[in-house]
Nucleic acid binder design. Structure first.
Lengths: 186, 186
DNA sequence: AGTTACATGTAAGACGTTACATGATTCA
DNA sequence: TGAATCATGTAACGTCTTACATGTAACT
């Protein structure tokens, strides 16, 4: 295990690079275009993040000269980087994480493709669903208790609706996965 | 208008202090207990933020000695602070804001209590609903276009469900507001 | 007497935002 | 030739996180 923290942006970059080797500029464009968990599409964030990943030995950058002599530094994930990425994906779903950083969990799911063992994905979705249920129950209890201001309660209600959507999502994805697994076996 | 940026945490503190004068410790506890848009309940964030607000002249802190000689620095919002808070609440709802910082908008609604003119609250909810519809439509279009990986599409689907919940929420809140207004007139 | 809760703060470090700088290439 | 795009970076700045420090008061 490599020492040193990796920021959320770093982990996302790791996930993207694991799929396909890319240059920093490609990633900048990618963030600007895709409607994902909204990250800084600013080079001032991405280039330093890539350098940090390289310093930790999680990615390696190689200067490729394109057809036209333009320099491009293409990064690819190392074995240690792949390990680190998997460690991130494998992390259990906690309430703290779900409440603190909405979207980071979904992001993890995004990177759980064919390389990740099915059991890990299943475990993720199961714990995602149960955790979302817990959080939703908490919010519902808060509303039942009748605390907070009127608008504060409305805001909590919005959170509650969101978590219910999370629950339904996890359930639906699991269902769809079960369905495709059955089809594959047939 | 006071110059100088105010962080999101700063704005939240401003909103809370506008309601009721409090000491830093009260705010620390508040964040630790309430299930709101998840902020750092760490003193290392809150105390400096209060000092920044004070330096900008948006709040004033006064040392009160409690019954028992324990020192407590109680902060209250100044006129300039109230102005700044209102300016924040009045800001139009933009797509960028909705996509970048989920929850900040809901936070704004939380602080729109009786002091805020009804028209502003109505305008907020209306633009909130239309903006959420726009964003949801975008995500739906992305899914229709069939781009992205399988799991990436699932993640976008989660986002879509969330935005649909936002739309429904805004609609319901508006409806309920209309209802209570009718009751008040009767 | 020792632990918990009250209450305020500082210091180090990491990270992201914004803005700027640089230079090559392609296209009008 | 000039503008837009490609492509990589740096510097300043503010803010949050984590961890630590300090001291009082209440409870057991």
């Amino acid at each position: 295990m490599v020492a040193g923290r990796v920021s959320r942006l770093g982990l996302v970059l790791l996930g993207l690079l694991d799929r396909e080797a890319r240059a920093g500029y490609d990633l900048v464009k990618l963030f600007a275009e895709t409607p994902m968990g909204h990250f800084s599409d600013s080079p001032g964030a991405i280039y330093p993040a890539l350098k940090r990943l390289e310093a930790l030995g999680l990615v390696t950058g190689a200067d490729h000269d394109t057809d036209a002599g333009r320099r491009r530094r293409v990064y690819r994930v190392t074995d240690a980087g792949r390990e680190r990425l998997l460690a991130w994906l494998r992390q259990p779903v906690t309430r703290a994480e779900m409440q603190r950083r909405e979207g980071e969990l979904a992001l993890r799911f995004t990177f759980m493709d064919s390389r990740v063992p099915t059991e890990i994905v299943d475990a993720f979705l199961r714990s995602y669903e149960t955790t979302a249920i817990e959080v939703a129950d908490d919010l519902a209890a808060y509303l039942d208790a009748g605390r907070g201001t009127e608008h504060g309660r409305f805001t909590v209600d919005l959170g509650l609706r969101n978590y219910r959507a999370h629950v339904a999502w996890a359930r639906d994805v699991r269902r769809e996965r079960a369905w495709t697994l059955v089809r594959q076996e047939a």
